[in-house]
Amino acid sequence: MLKIGLTGNIGSGKTLIAKIFSTFGAAVFNSDDEAKLIMKEVRMQKLLIERFGSHILNEENIIDRKLLAQLLFNDKDALNFVNHLIHPLVRQNFKDFCIKHANDPCCIYEAAIIIETSYYKNLDRLILVTAPEKLRIQRVIDRDKINEALVKQRMENQWSEDEKIPFADFVIVNDGIEPLVKQCVDVFNKICAE
């Protein structure tokens, strides 16, 4: 069973590609969903409140993710703190996930930051999803209901696609023109052939 990383910048369409691979029988692990679950754990909430104060809890007494994201955006120390807290747990859960899906052809680790954290070194192959910036901005505006300036602000914190391409084994272009399914079939067949 191969461990495959699936990454791409905001709005590139990672989740859609992951769904296509799941149709082929791949087991998909969404690191973002996993991180959300971890943040809801009581022990994690205690650590975050100790670091940021109780005001990061929302009305339902759980971590306000939007507020936390705002705090992390301008504070690199705080970002490192949270990353060091969450990422090891997410990765541990991925290891457990791989054991659970040992009989599947491959396990896909879907995350926005795989190259930046060098986690790709722990994976057998890396798939990068790319899309034109204009299209990615529009997708995020439609999906998250935020304005263009905020999307661009988020993008600035990510590596560019050109910087990421050298690290990828496969690049899937999700520009709305190139057929996605065909690209995914080709990639999946090549992975399985190995």
């Binding site: 296509i20 149709t23 529009q138 997708r139 439609d142 709305g176 057929p179 996605l180 399914v181």
Partner: peptide, 11 residues
């Protein structure tokens, strides 16, 4: 409508 056309797989 975004996207206007969607991809598919026949299983």
């Amino acid at each position: 409508v975004e996207p206007e056309r969607i991809e598919f797989i026949l299983i």
